[in-house]
């Protein structure tokens, strides 16, 4: 357990919280942030306390999306050019095995209960379902042209796959493993995040620069589309990619690609609250466990921006830029 200093000071207003903190034993291990470096074939491991790179893990070729196993003991990395998923032991930080994943795996997600990894195989217009315990392929689900973004609902009932050329969100029933709804979203949809309650799914579209919000309870339809307008930045460079949603339902963060901004959105009113300047071509985002900090991968500048979320006042500030490998793509925080 680790708390950023500034947050401690903030929370010190409540002396109870402070005394509780002081009673806590020294943290056994600081949080670790994993960043996939697409061009270096490595992962950078950042220490959550010192905000420095403490380890670089060699992996397969072209590592992009990452996901943790259900028990939190392993990290999976899609290594596209090796057509595989590397499985990393989180104790030793070494690749312990590699799972064949079909052609050009890019995005992966893990089911909350089952030992299943979902993989988008862009070349084959399918989503593959792999069992990471038995190391077998469970099934393949056909979707539109170039499946890319994936998201699993918190209750494990739904999988959403986006197809980049068909511009659709394919809503897949994970009991029957079939796509049951197909909804048009913006051009080149890239990423899917569910709200904590799972009642809504956010789908970002890179070329359109929009985020579609899909109702996941009744209609399974797009109920709202977010648009972004960054002052002084050409509309075309405002491209929506990675997203993170806070679990308290307040904030959503949207990486806006080559506009070098992260949008802060009110999860309830859909109002854009702020645009935060980060590194060049910001791609994916990850919140830390306390949701006090947001980490962004900046592909072109080759670094990670750390944004501090002050919370109550809705104040956000980039506090650090951490150099990592070349073309950092994905980022996850070890639970």
């Amino acid at each position: 357990m680790w708390f950023p200093t500034r947050t401690i000071i903030k929370q010190a207003a409540s002396s109870l919280a402070l005394s509780m903190l002081m009673l806590l034993p020294t943290a056994a291990q600081a949080e670790r942030i994993f960043v996939s470096n697409e061009k270096d074939n490595t992962l950078s491991v950042i220490d959550g306390e010192t905000l420095e790179v403490i380890e670089t893990i060699p992996v397969g070729r072209r590592p992009r999306a990452m996901a943790f196993s259900n028990d939190g003991s392993q990290l999976f990395v899609a290594v596209g050019d090796d057509e595989a998923i590397d499985m990393i032991d989180l104790d030793t930080l070494k690749v312990v095995r590699s799972l064949a994943a079909g052609e050009d795996p890019e995005v992966i997600r893990v089911h909350p209960d089952r030992p299943h990894i979902y993989v988008s195989n862009e070349d084959d217009n399918i989503v593959s379902v792999l069992d990471y315990q038995k190391r077998t392929r469970v099934t393949q689900i056909p979707v539109g042209v170039e499946p890319e973004g994936l998201g699993v609902s918190p209750d494990g009932k739904w999988l959403i796959a986006t197809s980049e050329t068909s511009n659709m969100a394919h809503i897949i029933d994970l009991e029957t493993m079939e796509a049951v709804y197909h909804r048009l979203v913006g051009a080149r949809p890239r990423h899917v995040e569910f709200t904590r309650e799972g009642d809504k799914a956010w789908v970002s579209a890179e070329i359109a620069g929009t985020v579609a919000i899909i109702d996941m309870q009744d209609t399974f339809d797009v109920i709202h589309t977010l648009e972004f307008e960054v002052p002084g930045v050409p509309r075309e460079t405002v491209q929506a990619v990675g997203m993170e949603l806070t679990s308290d339902g307040r904030f959503a963060f949207v990486a806006l690609g080559p506009s070098n901004r992260v949008a802060v959105v009110d999860q309830q009113s859909y109002e854009v609250l702020d645009y935060l300047l980060v590194g060049q071509r910001v791609w994916h985002l990850a919140l830390d466990a306390d949701e006090n900090r947001l980490f962004t991968t900046n592909g072109v500048s080759g670094d990670v921006t750390v944004i501090e979320i002050e919370g109550d006042e809705g104040d956000f500030e980039a506090i650090r830029s951490i150099p990592v490998g070349r073309f950092p793509w994905g980022v996850v925080v070890a639970p």
Binding site: N125, G144, V145, S163, T165, S166, N167, M168, H182, L184
Partner: peptide, 10 residues
């Protein structure tokens, strides 16, 4: 072919 992949759903 690309159009028809989306078209089949529409």
């Amino acid at each position: 072919r690309d159009n028809n992949t989306a078209g089949q759903f529409l």
